[in-house]
Nucleic acid binder design. Structure first.
Length: 295
DNA sequence: CTGGGGACGGGGCCC
DNA sequence: AGGGCCCCGTCCCCA
């Protein structure tokens, strides 16, 4: 099987926040913001504008922020004086008929990295108790009130670490830019493979389109250097010579495999009989033949 | 059946 | 971002 390191794998380091979310989901069942679905459940269906508001704020993409925020515990990190939530709440206040739970969901989702466990717990408890966040005019964000920027607050994207002075700036970033780069996986339109980067996907797509065509026989390849290697089969060129014998190879990998034949101890060893093989395929055949029933 | 060569695929790394 | 190359790997064929 070909390797596929770039193929999307869930629970990889690329998505640590989702792992956090999973743990939160299990450990803090009362928390309403541990997962998208949880927030979605908090959205009351009779208020379609609520969902619109939440999505416009990029709340879905703010989940990593929540994950980090809920993990913060050290006192020096527990700076609750900043209020990035204010802008979130104020933005939501433009939407009429917001449910209180939705506001809290947004609030928690927009919680920055620095937040104390106590505030986190308070937020969670407020969610269940139904507070009245929108009544506090002080929570209206400066940007929306045409006021100067407030203090040194920074809203940092969890994924790309870009910093913004306003939450709305971060929300816009998440929606228009980082959302695509940070949280979207790239699906191949020719098969069902998914990749973590656009570059990896583009490279994979070449294996479908095969843009490199041999002028001699018409055979197509995904990449130019593959075509170069193929052309050697026509020209007979063998630039890779064995230092131990006179053999030469057109392919470096084949030379590497050949070098194994010069070694007394081959790279792949049977666990049962200690016999070594130059190729793992040979070891596999050996094992399948019955030498290593345990493996 | 085994060992080895030929051809090639595909992701990673570097420039 | 894209190209070139590297590395690891597979599949097929043949002696």
């Amino acid at each position: 099987m070909p390797r596929s390191f770039l193929v999307k794998k869930h629970l990889t380091s690329r998505k640590p926040h989702y792992g956090h979310l999973e743990s939160l989901k299990k450990g803090e069942a009362t928390s309403p913001v541990v997962e998208e679905s949880v927030i979605a459940q908090s959205l009351q269906p009779e208020f379609p504008s609520t969902a619109t508001c939440v999505q416009a704020l990029g709340v879905w993409e703010c989940m990593p922020l929540v994950a980090v925020a809920t993990q913060t515990s050290s006192p020096e990190e527990a700076d609750v004086t900043s209020h990035p939530l204010r802008e979130t709440q104020a933005l939501c206040s433009f939407q009429e008929k917001l449910s209180e739970e939705t506001v809290l969901a947004v609030k928690l989702a927009a919680t920055p990295h620095r937040v104390s466990p106590s505030e986190r717990d308070m937020n969670a408890s407020q969610l269940s108790q139904g507070p009245r966040l929108l009544e506090d005019k002080s929570l209206i964000p400066s940007s929306l009130l045409s006021l100067p920027h407030h203090s040194q607050e920074k809203f940092e994207c969890f994924d790309c670490h870009k910093a913004y002075y306003t939450f709305s700036g971060l929300a816009k970033h998440k929606q228009l830019h980082c959302e695509w780069q940070c949280h979207r996986y790239f699906n191949c339109k020719y098969c069902d493979k998914e990749y973590v980067s656009l570059g990896a996907l583009k490279m994979h797509i070449r294996t479908h389109t095969l843009p490199c065509v041999c002028k001699l026989c018409g055979k197509a390849f995904s990449r130019p250097w593959l075509l170069q290697g193929h052309i050697r089969t026509h020209t007979g060129e063998k630039p890779f010579s064995c230092p131990h014998c006179s053999r030469a190879f057109a392919d470096r990998s084949n030379l590497r495999a050949h070098l194994q034949t010069h070694s007394d101890v081959k790279k792949y060893q049977c666990k049962s009989c200690s016999k070594t093989f130059s190729r793992i395929s040979l070891l596999s055949k050996h094992e399948e033949a019955g030498c290593c029933p345990l493996s």
